[in-house]
Amino acid sequence: MSVLKTVVAGIIVVAGLSSQAVMAKEWKEIRIATEGTYKPFSYIADGKLTGFDVDIANALCEKMQAKCTIVSQEWDGMIPGLMSGKYDATVASMSITPERQKKIDFTDKYYATPARFIAVKESEIKETTPESLKGITVGVQGSTSQASYLEDNFKGTEVKMYKTVDDANMDLANGRIDLVFSDAAILADWMKSADGACCKFVGGDVRDEKYFGVGKGIGVRKSDPDLRDRFNAAIKAIIADGTYDRINKKYFDFSIQ
């Protein structure tokens, strides 16, 4: 009789786990994190989160028929917050890199843009090689792929870390640093503003898969491959039906896909 009870109990446990697995794969409600200080990808306007990443997240959720809550999260805590279960995914312009893939999983890329340097228009800096930038001060957002790239490859350059790209840009505009290094789309958008009219691109596109990966992906926990797969299917769907292109054109005058 005790053996029978043990078998029955085992069946109940297995059934319970199977039921939980099925429920987990439904993903009717998803909590998504973005940064909120990374215009035009994510920023606050009229008290609400908006931007390319936010619109993409909402479009993906609509395709998945999921109720999504989008929250702002400071960049330094983005991956730790995901891993601890604070939210289920990040749609935050995060580069898919080997280092990050050790901790979390990623969807296919949903956009890819190069990194670039900017300087004030009066600057005589033209080349942006490690040799040419010795003794130069470059601003960059901390804990980013761009920051890692500079620290590893520009040993003779003074790399100054900032909490946000906007903070670095303002120091550049005010003559406190010589260059800013960030995502080209972010910098291009800022240079359209009154504050950014001071500045120009210098050097060329910077692409290095070791640091910048193959593009930007949606981050999920390694324990949630089903959620990753649902996002991948939704990414393909919004590209196929033209939704992605409409969102792209809302923020950029060039394709970032």
Rank of each mutant, 00 (worst) to 15 (best):
M1N: 11
V3Q: 10
V3T: 03
L4Y: 08
T6K: 13
V7M: 04
V7F: 13
V8Y: 04
I11V: 14
V13C: 10
V14N: 15
M23Y: 12
E26A: 15
K28T: 15
K28G: 12
I30L: 12
I30Q: 11
I32D: 02
T34W: 00
T34E: 02
K39N: 13
K39L: 08
Y43E: 06
G47L: 01
G47N: 07
F52R: 01
D53I: 15
D55E: 11
E62M: 12
C68Q: 11
C68Y: 05
T69W: 15
I70M: 05
S72F: 11
S72Y: 08
S72C: 11
W75S: 02
W75Q: 05
D76V: 13
D76M: 10
G77E: 06
G81R: 02
L82E: 01
M83Y: 13
G85M: 09
D88K: 04
D88E: 14
A89R: 01
T90Y: 07
A92L: 09
M94L: 15
I96F: 07
E99D: 07
Q101L: 05
K103V: 05
I104P: 05
D105H: 12
D105M: 10
D108C: 11
K109T: 04
Y111H: 13
A112K: 12
A115C: 14
R116G: 04
R116Y: 08
F117K: 02
A119H: 05
S123G: 07
S123F: 04
E124L: 09
E124F: 14
K126N: 14
K126R: 11
E127D: 09
T128F: 03
P130R: 02
K134L: 06
I136S: 07
I136F: 01
G139C: 04
V140E: 00
Q141H: 03
S143Q: 08
A147M: 08
S148V: 03
L150T: 02
E151V: 05
E151Q: 12
N153F: 04
K155H: 06
G156K: 07
T157Y: 01
E158G: 00
E158H: 07
V159Y: 01
K163H: 09
K163S: 05
V165H: 09
D166S: 12
L172M: 13
G175V: 15
G175T: 12
R176G: 07
I177Y: 00
I177R: 00
D178C: 08
S182M: 01
D183W: 03
A184E: 08
A184Q: 07
A185V: 06
A185H: 00
L187G: 10
K192H: 15
G196I: 15
C198K: 09
C198L: 13
D205E: 09
D205T: 02
V206G: 00
G213P: 01
K216V: 07
I218M: 09
R221G: 11
D224K: 10
D226T: 10
R228H: 14
D229E: 13
D229I: 06
R230F: 11
F231A: 01
A233E: 15
A234D: 09
I235E: 00
I235A: 04
I235P: 00
A237P: 04
D241K: 13
G242Y: 10
Y244L: 03
D245Y: 10
R246S: 09
K250V: 09
F252D: 04
D253V: 08
